[in-house]
């Protein structure tokens, strides 16, 4: 087990040895500090949880994009650099190497999320008052609960998109394709919901893109096409398992040539 953790430590070392990783983390800090500051300068009459939620809903997009960038390089980078050969001849099965890489991506996504949440919270708290007690937050429920639920649903979306990027990176060994395709999905998925409306097409409720944003359930008990939260979660889980299976199969069976 400790041996396996060394593999994860290796992947972390490779991620954090690159200056661009630190640039991305610095940008996250800047944006999450800058947004509450802008609200403050604009002089809105808001409480800290509203500011936090607004900031987070914008900046989390960046966290997702940066995690996608890391995930996309994870396997494709090793192929591009040619280092995959020296990595795979070690006494470790390919499955374990793949898992260590995926865990490193998840760790980065958690680091990014924590930085986003902490910075946004610290600056919102410094610049704005807490809401009057008993007042409803704008996300429904009590204000902190709404803000945290929002963060959680955003993280679920990040998780799915990052897994897609990781899969494309493994299957096509191209970092740019992985970044491009997964960000494309991130930005146009709402369009899918409009075109293939589950009210009109029965099968559309099994489409992944309708379920990546679970925040609809914060406001209402039913989601797209009248499905429940558990239906959405199950659809997401099934897709994630399929993506993981594809990634593992391709990585474990591939001949590494040239």
């Amino acid at each position: 087990m400790t041996d396996f953790l060394k593999l994860v430590a290796n992947e972390n070392m490779k991620i954090y040895s690159r200056s661009r990783t630190w640039v991305m983390l610095a940008i996250l800090v800047l944006c999450n500090a800058g947004m509450p500051l802008l609200f403050y300068i604009a002089g809105g009459d808001m409480d800290r949880w509203t500011v936090f939620s607004w900031t987070e809903s914008f900046t989390f997009m960046l966290t997702t994009i940066f995690t996608v960038v890391i995930a996309a390089e994870m396997i494709a980078g090793e192929f591009t650099w040619g280092t995959i050969k020296l990595l795979l001849i070690r006494p470790w099965s390919r499955g374990k190497i793949l898992l260590s890489k995926y865990l490193a991506v998840l760790l980065f996504s958690i680091v990014g999320t924590v930085i986003t949440a902490l910075t946004a919270f610290i600056f919102s708290s410094m610049l704005f008052e807490s809401p009057a007690s008993g007042m409803e937050g704008f996300m429904g429920g009590t204000a902190p609960r709404g803000a945290l639920l929002n963060l959680l649903t955003d993280y679920v979306e990040l998780f799915v998109i990052a897994l897609i990027a990781f899969m494309i990176s493994t299957v096509f060994r191209s970092g740019s394709l992985a970044i491009g395709l997964s960000l494309f999905i991130l930005f146009v998925k709402n369009l899918f919901g409009l075109i293939f409306n589950p009210e009109r097409f029965e099968w559309a409720k099994y489409v992944l893109f309708l379920h990546t944003d679970l925040s609809v359930y914060i406001h209402s008990p039913t989601g797209p096409g009248g499905v429940s939260l558990w239906f959405s979660v199950t659809v997401l889980a099934v897709y994630c398992l399929i993506f993981a299976a594809i990634t593992w199969t391709v990585f474990a069976k591939r001949d590494v040539a040239a």
Binding site: W81, T83, L86, P91
Partner: peptide, 20 residues
């Protein structure tokens, strides 16, 4: 022998040493 160019030679060796 392709190495991780953005790391020092020593870190590269640490990387492989951890795997065995």
């Amino acid at each position: 022998p392709e190495m991780y160019k953005f790391m020092s030679g020593y870190k590269n060796l640490i990387h492989y040493a951890r795997m065995m």
